[in-house]
């Protein structure tokens, strides 16, 4: 069990990388679709609505399988520029995770935008702030503060979600744990060690969000 620890810790790096990259891209996707959702244009609204609906209504495992194994079989995709992204399991995993977390984040951000006090915006307009200024200096910071608790949960869900990268050949923490088991045949111990590493990471995220909430609380 001790011998497997260095390999598991090494694989933890992959897990952390996958989580951070997916979350980073996911924030952009999330904000983008949240804005589409608040748009008055029906088409934009529907695109955003169905994107979020489909990705939240189906399991992540199905999504990653469609993107990796499904799209990989389509000839015209293999001949297009998309193949640069879809050829590698790593980028496929990031793509699937980003689209998934983007859908959940868009809902979180949308409700955060909706709760912003209209009076604040009026006041800002009155003070002569321009639109971009209002968005970046007022709307976005308030929305971020508003969505912290829910987004913290989403971060933990994404961390756990990255374990599915192991189903598309990636050697993340879960992938390596499975790999060790297939050669040592001691499943329970290895999974308990891997599970503990995940727990430590959730613990860190949990406390980080708590710290941010405190730091940016209104009181």
């Amino acid at each position: 069990m001790i011998e497997s620890l260095p390999r598991l810790l090494n694989a933890t790096k992959v897990t952390i990388e996958l989580t951070l990259l997916s979350l980073l891209f996911g924030i952009f996707v999330g904000v983008f679709f949240a804005l589409l959702r608040t748009s008055k244009n029906r088409v934009f609204y529907f695109i955003s609505y169905y994107y979020s609906y489909i990705f939240r209504g189906t399991p992540l495992l199905v999504q990653i399988f469609i993107i990796y194994f499904g799209l990989g079989q389509v000839e015209w995709i293999r001949e297009s520029f998309l193949w640069i992204l879809l050829k590698e399991p790593y980028s496929c995993a990031i793509l699937a995770f980003t689209l998934n977390t983007g859908a959940y984040s868009s809902e979180i951000f949308r409700s955060a935008f909706e709760t912003i006090n209209k009076g604040v915006l009026e006041a800002a307009k009155g003070l002569g702030f321009n639109k971009l200024h209002i968005f970046f200096k007022i709307k976005l910071p308030i929305a971020i503060r508003q969505s912290l608790p829910a987004y913290g949960n989403e971060m933990i869900l994404m961390l756990k979600g990255t374990s599915l990268a192991s189903t598309v050949t990636l050697l993340d923490l879960t992938g390596v744990a499975k790999h060790i088991i297939s050669t040592t045949f001691r499943p329970v111990e290895v999974f308990i060690v891997a599970g503990s590493i995940y727990l430590i990471m959730t613990f860190i995220i949990h406390n980080f969000i708590k710290y941010l909430e405190k730091k940016y609380s209104y009181e």
């Binding site: 979600g161 879960t174 599970g195 613990f203």
Partner: peptide
């Protein structure tokens, strides 16, 4: 804490 913090896949394997 444990069952919301550990990936579902690991729990299932376990």
């Amino acid at each position: 804490t444990v069952f919301r913090g550990v990936p579902e896949l690991l729990v299932i394997y376990l």
